[in-house]
Nucleic acid binder design. Sequence first.
DNA 1: CACTCCGCAGAACTAAGGTTCTATTACAAG
DNA 2: CTTGTAATAGAACCTTAGTTCTGCGGAGTG
Lengths: 212, 212
Amino acid sequence: MRTREAGLSEKQIKLRIFIQKFLDEHAYPPTVRDIQHACGISSTSVVDYNLNILEERGVIKRNPDISRGIEVVAIGGKRTVRIPVLSAIAAGEPLPVPDAGAASRGHDTYDIPQEIVAGKANVYALRVKGTSMIDALIDDGDLVVMQQTSSADNGDMVAARLKLDNSFTLKRFYKEPTRIRLQPANSQMQPIYVRPEDMDIQGRVLGVIRKL
Amino acid sequence: MRTREAGLSEKQIKLRIFIQKFLDEHAYPPTVRDIQHACGISSTSVVDYNLNILEERGVIKRNPDISRGIEVVAIGGKRTVRIPVLSAIAAGEPLPVPDAGAASRGHDTYDIPQEIVAGKANVYALRVKGTSMIDALIDDGDLVVMQQTSSADNGDMVAARLKLDNSFTLKRFYKEPTRIRLQPANSQMQPIYVRPEDMDIQGRVLGVIRKL
DNA sequence: CACTCCGCAGAACTAAGGTTCTATTACAAG
DNA sequence: CTTGTAATAGAACCTTAGTTCTGCGGAGTG
């Protein structure tokens, strides 16, 4: 039977859609009776019945005895996160280091999609100055979302400092048996190879936000 | 002129702060009695009295006879915007066209920084498939924020359809005396030139969001 | 002093709205 | 046929919560 697999009946999906729509345009949740009338249901008990099923399925959360106490369980809660914007970086400059509580003080902040941060800590943003990171598909003026860390997994895009000339670069990180390969995001360009002791990792790039 | 905050008493500011805090952690607005107890006020009528003042000052909006019908009118507007994510695009495919109210229906949506949209209408997002737009600094999996339009200013990044081979491309748009120059964002690459009648504009790129 | 307005207290009133109870229908399994 | 269950309907119940009314003390004012 379909309800077993899909989890939700036609009517239950209708309820969920209406609740979301209502929240979009009202800033407060609907009542049981709002839902009843909007979805053409004849009784509040039917709404109650189906809302309980939606809650069992984890689609919504109900707060008993609280009027309009319906919440849609957004995956991971809020859909945006506020992070501090530290300062601009240009090629060769040392990377600014975030300190605890930077966001709460007078700092510049920016709201970015939650999905980019994905629950990670020590996340901040840097405004890119210049086109020196064009090979990482990062342009002048882009906002780079960083996580402060000194380790990385293979394939991560990292901010690496090359000790030889003390320069910074954004590349994908691959640990090979005897060396480290730093691969530009633009695959048409050539990777560079360094010995592990000739570089260190300043941070990991989580995302890029560009406004044209 | 900050006439808004100026006319508020100690107590009224306390109410406003509590309402915002409550909204942050509850997904539904507080009741008059919630406010009463949280702010140590002895009577609901006092809360009512001060809420009315807050509404006169334009700090909040009240919906009569609706439980928890309090909205805080956002100062300076929201910092994120929810837009519909239409579908994936790959090179050469026709661009999907947004229709009114797409976001409110069962559609996929995404929250992006308000700054990118900047009040423009007909904004939607496309998930990029493939690396065919690497010369526009757009990678596989990127989310491209588009505005549906058929005109563009010089320097805009546009989604252009080349009629000759019916292909799509993202380039910067420059109108020259006798021809149109389509300039890749990566300035190391060569522009292409077309006659105005050999192309049309499908939309304007407002921004790019990349999650690594 | 009388008068008014503001802010507050307490209580009562009433509509809104969550919840529950009982009954009915449809349908599938035993 | 009987039983069980999912889904529904209608109504009643009763807490929640917005609103109103009356009164009171203080501050300013003519």
